[in-house]
Amino acid sequence: MMVLLLVSCTRSTANDPIDINFKSGTSGIELQLLANHPPRRIVEGSTFNIAVQVSNTGAYDMGVGEITVIGLDQVYTPIERQDAVIPPLKGRSESNNQGDFYVQEFSGGKTVVPPGAKEYRAKFLLVAAYEYMNVVGKDVCINPALIEIESEQASCQIQDRIRLSGQGAPVAVTQIEETVSPVGDDVKIDFILTIDNRGRGKVVSPILISDVRLGTKPLTCNKREITMFELENKRNTVVCSRTEQRQSAYTSPLSATLQYMYKTTEEGEFVVQRSR
């Protein structure tokens, strides 16, 4: 009881740094149909309206994007414009902890039920294709001395394999493997980054890998992109290296930027009922 009381009385001061990790999770641009837009049933001859909330629930600002409605028969459920540009949407951050969102509407014309049918079930897909990115930043242990000493004496212990969850975007660096090998008087440090699609959509472009750094020092990578074919066939790794002089172990952030086009979809349907 006393502990609870003490904990409840603990107050952070204005000078305490804000420590909320927005760069987590695997979502990016999310689509959500608004209720009753369109209604589940409409009567033949009436018009319809599709309204979808487009939210950037990832941690990065969205670049170029487009949303398209596909699957509607223009004869029975005509629609004025099938696509629209998604305006720039900022991702989640300290000053915007939900991320930007807006509502996109698609106006439909007069509906028709095919001859001989009692009703027409109109199924459609909303597809958002957008440019997105993410930055992985993970503190790693560098031990250029190649000497393993007891944990209480060492600055840090190298983890052969670090598994990661998402970095606030649908594509994520899911694993970092580290190897250190001697090269003359120096040591070569290799990082094998595994990149996966952890979102609910699909990667529709090569994943460009850039700005791979250890602290402020650049690393050299064996490739600059992972193609869609490589991603689907689990050849989804990139090896980045750096040669360092032998010195004491230290901790440094490994960071890399991934850029790609991503596609996410949302299904919807409504029924056009013949009028009597």
Partner: peptide, 16 residues
């Protein structure tokens, strides 16, 4: 100087 895109850095300070 935090590297660009690194929001948090948590090294141990080790005195030997």
């Amino acid at each position: 100087i935090l590297p660009q895109d690194v929001d948090k850095y948590e090294p141990p300070l080790v005195a030997t």
